[in-house]
């Protein structure tokens, strides 16, 4: 046996024994690379995710809703930061990670390439988009890499209000005037399928899945999580009198799950490829914020250097 095989076997034995992997532990290069890709994508999603919601902060219908939305968007910034820190423990620099987002080399969740057209979209994003994200994040609290798992625990504690405030917005609209109810239904119609796509390709077509499961980076498959999300969300839609836009949706007594229609994967692939309604707008916004913040980053460093010099003098 080569040294590498021995190291790999020891590594897998730790994973199998449910021991967390910590930054200084030996790990296969591919495990490291997979994690860097996944954690930084996740971080970018939190950061880009602030844009569609930030769009409504100034137009929130009440002070209560505005304070809530501000707190939620601030949380997303925080979640991005927890995750960037976790990625950094794997030996990447923050600068490189951010550059990869800004150059378009790194991906973020495609869901944020859809526009938030009405106030009801803020309800739908919280309820469906955060709801789908939570399914994934709860699973990731048990992921095998320690710093990632710890970041996820913190995120999950904060995320549950995000989904609840969104569902509350939808419930209020659905019980409001006919126009308000229609607005809520329209938002559900537009966000339903993209939310299901958030779980990623079907298990049969998911390129990174088998390895991620073996290494316990992921612990449940895309299709499993998607099904749980559908079962829960359809019930929640019924409670507030909205209907899920899937004619094939039907409760299956035998499986105790909903049967449902087919995702339009060509739409998914198209948005991933950069042709969604807001891909360009999002990248322009992130690059603009980064460029226009350059003087702040420089000034802060210059001020820190000046203070240090004064202290030494």
């Amino acid at each position: 046996m080569t040294d590498l095989t021995i190291l790999e076997e020891r590594f897998q034995a730790k994973i199998d024994a449910e021991l967390k992997i910590e930054p200084k532990d030996w790990m296969p290069e591919k495990y490291r690379k997979n994690l860097i890709r996944q954690i930084s994508q996740h971080a970018h999603s939190e950061v880009v995710g602030m844009l569609p919601e930030g769009n409504w902060i100034t137009r929130a219908p009440s002070l209560r809703r505005k304070a809530i939305l501000l707190a939620k968007v601030q949380d997303e910034a925080g979640h991005g930061l927890y995750l960037y820190s976790a990625a950094e423990t794997l030996g990447t620099s923050r600068e490189q990670t951010i550059d990869d987002l800004l150059s378009g080399k790194a991906k973020y969740s495609s869901i944020f390439n859809y526009p938030t057209l009405t106030w009801a979209d803020i309800g739908a994003v919280g309820w469906l988009v955060d709801g789908a994200a939570i399914m994934n994040q709860v699973m990731l609290c048990r992921t095998s890499y320690g710093p990632y798992a710890r970041a996820m625990v913190r995120i999950c504690k904060e995320e549950s209000f995000h989904q609840r405030q969104g569902y509350e917005i939808m419930a209020v609209l659905a019980n409001g005037t006919p126009e308000q109810k229609e607005m809520a239904q329209d938002a559900l119609n537009r966000w339903w399928w993209p939310s299901l796509m958030m779980f990623g390709p079907t298990d049969a077509n998911s390129p990174h899945s088998a390895e991620s499961m073996k290494w316990k980076i992921k612990r449940q498959s895309n299709d499993e999580l998607r099904q749980i999300f559908i079962d829960r969300t359809v019930q929640q839609a019924e409670v507030i009198g909205l209907s899920v836009p899937d004619p094939a949706l039907k409760w299956n007594e035998a499986t105790q799950h909903y049967d449902w229609g087919t995702i339009d994967w060509s739409e998914f692939n198209n948005v991933v490829a950069g042709n969604g309604p807001c891909n360009k707008e999002r990248m322009v916004a992130r690059n603009k914020a980064h460029d226009e913040g350059a003087w702040v980053r420089e000034a802060a460093l210059a001020y820190a250097a000046k203070k240090l010099k004064r202290k030494a003098a």
């Binding site: 930061l81 976790a86 802060a300 460093l301 001020y303 820190a304």
Partner: peptide
């Protein structure tokens, strides 16, 4: 210990 962050100086 809760995590890490970047800042120009200790106060920040």
């Amino acid at each position: 210990h809760v995590g890490s962050l970047h800042a120009a100086d200790p106060q920040m």
